[in-house]
Computed example of a mutant assay.
Amino acid sequence: MTVRLYVDEDALDSDLVSALRARGVDVITAREASLIEQKDEVHLEYATRQGRALFSFNVGDFYRLHTGFLRGGKSHAGIILARQQRYSVGEQMRRLLKLVVTKSAEEMSNQVEYLSAWD
């Protein structure tokens, strides 16, 4: 199964979402899910229920949530993290596309991927 994405409010950029969708990536945003200003755990739980890998710039908090989920016997559909303002929208899109075509949804399960590794 192909990786589907959930973009949290920290990483939300309408140009990025439009570009990914134009290239066939299944993406939903925090705004579309009515989850603006919700706790990080709510975002990860929503993405998990939807079978979507979460994309965020909130590196520290989501890595801690990943660790807590696994320690607590909970699973998630994957987390993709990037440092804020490190990549242009075009670079984010290129790296996300490379990840999505390389990894399956099953391979993303309970994994954290850093966008920096997908150049």
Rank of each mutant, 00 (worst) to 15 (best):
F69I: 05
G73F: 13
E106G: 03
G90D: 13
L54G: 08
L12D: 05
G78Q: 08
L12P: 00
L81Q: 07
I28Q: 00
K39C: 05
S104G: 08
D26P: 05
Y63N: 08
L99S: 09
V7D: 04
F57I: 02
F55Q: 02
Q85S: 12
L20H: 08
E107Y: 06
V27T: 03
Q85A: 10
R83H: 12
L96K: 05
R83D: 11
E113G: 01
A77R: 02
H43Q: 07
V42A: 11
T48M: 09
Q50E: 15
D26N: 02
R31Y: 14
T2S: 14
N110I: 01
F55I: 03
E91V: 10
Y114V: 04
R21I: 03
L70I: 12
S75Y: 04
N58H: 11
R21A: 03
A22H: 07
G72M: 11
S104P: 03
I36V: 14
R23F: 14
G60W: 09
L5C: 07
Q38N: 09
D15A: 14
S88Q: 03
T2V: 09
Q84P: 00
D61G: 07
R64P: 00
S88P: 00
V100L: 07
R86S: 09
I28G: 00
Q50I: 02
V100C: 13
L5Y: 07
V7A: 03
S56W: 09
F55W: 04
S14G: 02
M108D: 07
T67Q: 15
T67P: 00
A77M: 03
R83I: 12
L35D: 04
Y87R: 03
D13N: 12
L5Q: 05
T29P: 06
G90H: 03
S34W: 07
G72S: 12
S104D: 06
Y6I: 02
G24P: 13
V112M: 14
